[in-house]
């Protein structure tokens, strides 16, 4: 170990890898919950009003975007790591924090999108004025995931090489 340095210990990449895993797991769990919960609602109203299915797919698209956020952060973190690069413990913690941030905000936003999508789509079946409100609520819920993405990008630049 010629380049043994207390700032770049051998276990530092563990935290970066954990950040990648947390980003993907949390974000995809949120996206899956949002898709499944609102998909139940869409299937429920599709029986009665099939012409509303296309308009009701918005929560599913928003859940997909949560998955894209976590995918972007995971790709970013993975691009900063490599067997030849020196990887400091600070970088590892930054990447861990970035992954945790985007993963948990994605989980929260996916939970909100799932519940709002399910109930909102069912309400939209009988009252069409709910639609604009539902879209606004969904956008506000989805912006929570965007905040997580922004903080994760900032953390990633802090830890950048």
């Amino acid at each position: 170990m010629a380049d043994h340095n207390p700032l770049t210990p051998a276990f530092a990449p563990f935290f970066g890898m954990a950040g990648i895993a947390f980003a993907m797991i949390g974000g995809c769990a949120g996206a899956a919950f949002g898709t499944a919960k609102s998909g139940i609602g869409i299937s429920g109203i599709g029986i009665f009003r099939p012409e509303l299915i296309m308009k009701s797919l918005i929560p599913v698209v928003m859940s997909g975007i949560l998955g894209v956020y976590s995918l972007v952060v995971a790709v970013l973190i993975a691009g900063d790591m490599g067997p030849e690069k020196s990887y400091s413990l600070f970088q590892g913690f930054c990447h861990f924090g970035a992954g945790l941030t985007v993963g948990l905000t994605g989980l929260a936003a996916g939970y909100a999108i799932g519940n709002v999508g399910d109930s909102g789509v069912r309400a939209y079946m009988s009252q069409s004025r709910v639609y604009v409100g539902m879209v606004l609520i969904l956008i506000f819920a989805e912006v929570l995931g965007l905040y997580g993405l922004i903080v994760a990008l900032i953390l990633n630049t802090k830890g950048g090489s």
Binding site: V61, V68, V72, L76, E142, L153, N156
Partner: peptide, 15 residues
């Protein structure tokens, strides 16, 4: 980071 921002913006454009 610029590429990541562009990707996020692109996802929102699709939305």
């Amino acid at each position: 980071v610029l590429g990541a921002s562009i990707a996020a913006v692109m996802a929102n454009v699709v939305l």
